[in-house]
Design a binder for these strands. Structure first.
Lengths: 184, 184
DNA sequence: CATGGACGTCAACACATGTTGGCCTACAGT
DNA sequence: ACTGTAGGCCAACATGTGTTGACGTCCATG
């Protein structure tokens, strides 16, 4: 048996956990499966992360890295927002984990609300003072991610990312910019 | 012990199952908990439904009852669609069950795609021939339901249903009616 | 060279779950 | 009154889970 450094093992576990949680959600993802993927004994997971709950918390760390939107050109900011959001849905990211688990796991649900309140809310608040608008935009974006990446609705999975951006951005734009438009 | 009729017991189990699946999702909802809620023995659930999987299938039966939208006035049809959709999210309905479970359970995920393909798709197809538009509308509606009823995002939970309709309907309208509008 | 600590495995515990078969009991039909 | 059947309960089994502790083994450091 070749030995690995502790940090490398820990990283390997986290990588495997990220994949498993994203694929199966919190309850169906087992410590044993994560350990098998990482090529080590289940007891190692406990040694490095303490418990399944804490392993999951580590896999939930997510930083959307939303830029400061103040003063951004309103025409492009919606498309940029959508594009930025979609880029966080590749395999290995934390967002799939969070959504997959957040629907059935109270801890993940709370974490998701935190991300919303601490990252999305302040960023989009630069564009509109109305928190309800931010909720609407989040619903739009999360709904797209849900249908495309989780539920795999055929018309959405076959579209390219830029097609998605082109289709969604105007709707997002409209949500934070209703005042400047006429009603249809 | 007062005896109930078989049909009444079966209905009681189904009601309890609906609530449990909606609250906890497929994996965390246990036969024992459903039986306890229904006030009977877990073995009864097996007698009447055969297995957890078949009990879940029974709880997944959903008929959105979408009306024929052909010839409907395009101005009102979006609002009607949103309102109709939201009405299926009250406790006791099958849609919360389906979404809560569809994110982690393959069977429910497949069922959700079926509902989409067999009910939503044909109904909305009367308004636009492009299936991608139907996907976008579904993403919009499911995203709203997800954020409001499952994740309970504060700004969305405090809005009234009609406020939601007023906010979402124009976006939906725009999705199936892009051709008739100018771009912003 | 020894030796302690980090890396890793193994076997087992305690518990919850879906599921099964046997048994009891009330009620309807004769 | 007798009895078959349907409604219902109980105890148990097999399995998979998170978690734990004891036991090896390599490597760097004295």
């Amino acid at each position: 048996m070749t030995r690995r450094s502790g940090a490398a093992t820990k990283a390997g576990i986290l990588e495997a956990a990220l994949a498993r949680f994203a694929e199966d959600g919190y309850e169906r993802a087992t410590i044993r499966a994560v350990a098998a993927d990482a090529g080590i004994d289940p007891a190692m997971v406990m040694r490095y992360f303490g418990s399944k709950e804490r392993l999951f918390a580590a896999a939930c760390e997510v930083d959307l890295g939303l830029p400061d939107l103040r003063g951004a050109p309103r025409d492009e900011v919606a498309a940029a927002l959508v594009r930025h959001f979609l880029s966080h849905w590749e395999p290995g990211e934390s967002l799939p984990v969070l959504l997959r688990a957040g629907v059935t796991n109270a801890q993940a649900e709370e974490r998701l609300r935190e991300v919303f309140a601490a990252q999305v809310m302040p960023a989009v608040a630069a564009l509109t003072p109305d928190p309800r608008r931010v909720g609407l935009i989040s619903a739009q974006l999360l709904g797209m991610a849900l249908c495309r990446y989780i539920l795999k609705f055929p018309p959405l999975t076959t579209m390219t990312r830029e097609e998605i951006v082109a289709a969604i951005a105007p709707a997002v734009h409209r949500f934070f910019d209703l005042d400047n438009e006429e009603k249809t």
